[in-house]
């Protein structure tokens, strides 16, 4: 149970970083932290105490199959990491472009639109 709680703590830290920090690069970092907190959460869901990696080997006793951790969340996490990579590179590119326009990373200076 504690691990799930710690996951949520990490998620909240990311959210705090996103909301409280003015620097847009720090906001990006907040998003990345939140992303990783959720990835960690997914991995924990599939975990089994004393489990082994779900890889079949040639000379493996069949009883090992029962100790496999759930591979599906791992596949989900891989996909989500890939998506996170794409989003992060887009965010970084936009940060650089915003820096070019304004000469600063400070959101309160950049912000012209009223929301």
């Amino acid at each position: 149970m504690t691990v799930y709680f710690l996951c949520v703590v990490l998620l909240t830290m990311g959210l705090y970083c996103l909301v409280a920090k003015k620097n847009i690069v720090k906001k990006v970092l907040g998003i990345v932290i939140m992303d990783y907190a959720v990835n960690l959460y997914l991995i924990i869901i599939g975990y089994k105490t004393g489990g082994v990696a779900p890889i079949i080997e040639a000379d493996m006793p069949l009883s090992t199959l029962e100790r496999f951790v759930d591979p599906l969340p791992q596949a989900l996490v891989l996909t989500s990491i890939v998506i996170g990579l794409g989003v992060m590179s887009l965010m970084v590119a936009m940060c650089i472009r915003l820096y070019e326009k304004h000469g600063t990373f400070d959101m309160s200076v950049i912000s012209k639109l009223r929301g």
């Binding site: 847009i24 998003i31 992303d35 959720v38 959460y41 965010m91 936009m94 915003l98 639109l113």
Partner: peptide, 28 residues
């Protein structure tokens, strides 16, 4: 890629990413 478009895109990107994080959490 003007200042206004970039800012709007960045806001959309940040909030959209938060939404994605929530959805992934819910799916998990």
């Amino acid at each position: 890629v003007d200042a206004e478009e970039l800012e709007a895109g960045f806001k959309y990107l940040i909030l959209g990413s938060v939404a994605s994080v929530m959805l992934l959490f819910a799916i998990g």
